[in-house]
Design a protein around this nucleic acid. Structure first.
Length: 192
DNA sequence: CTTTTGATCGTCT
DNA sequence: GACGATCAAAAGC
């Protein structure tokens, strides 16, 4: 029995756009993914797996179809779908989505001042809206992630926030979606 | 809309 | 000890 996650086992830059349009329901509340970023395991200097396996990134080295969650900037959680072959440690960062279900739940977790389109706009906003945290690191996504038909229109460009590998256009999003986060280069990126 | 800046701490060197 | 795969508020257009 090939796992449900078989479509996640190709090259990560081909897998990432397949996640656009998918629905995710990890801990109450559902989001439709509108923006993702690919990280190519040990080959990618921007990847958390670039310098090998550590306690934090262990989940990345496991099979596809699991959630890799990490703590960022001392206050945020960010979530990835582990992709690629077992041991390759590729992953796709979930950058933004549109809340389809559990609007009240998402608003309660994010705060009343946030607009509907802003609820899951940005990787840390998305995890907060969905209730993703430490407990979801290593979560088996079967039953939580539903892939859809490939979107017919996908935009791509440089990744947000990374200070290396700017030439790699591995951010993918659904054009025209108001839930897609604004592009910001890393403050530490080389001037240009 | 844009730019700037402070918050805050786990992780790895 | 330095550095983030970030965010929100504040201030200027």
């Amino acid at each position: 029995m090939p796992g449900w996650s078989e479509p996640l086992t190709g090259a990560v830059d081909e897998v990432a756009p397949r996640l656009l349009g998918a629905t995710l329901t990890p801990a109450g509340g559902t989001v439709r993914l509108t923006e993702v970023e690919a990280y190519d395991g040990g080959n990618d200097p921007a990847s958390h797996a670039y310098r090998g396996r550590t306690p934090r990134n262990t989940v990345m080295f496991g099979p596809a179809g699991f959630l890799y969650v990490y703590f960022s900037y001392g206050m945020h959680w960010c979530a990835n779908v582990v992709c690629g072959e077992d041991g390759r440690a590729s992953a796709v960062l979930l950058r933004a989505g549109k809340v389809l279900d559990g609007l009240d739940l998402a608003r309660a977790r994010r705060g009343d001042r946030v607009s509907d389109r802003g609820l899951a706009r940005g990787p840390a906003c998305l995890t907060q809206a969905l209730g993703i945290g430490r407990d979801q690191d290593g979560l088996d996504l079967s039953g939580h992630l539903a892939l859809t038909d490939p979107p017919n229109d996908v935009a791509r460009g440089p990744r947000v926030g990374v200070s290396v590998a700017h030439d790699v256009p591995w951010r993918f999003w659904l054009p025209g979606e108001p839930t897609v986060s604004a592009y910001k280069r890393s403050p530490r990126a080389p001037a240009g």
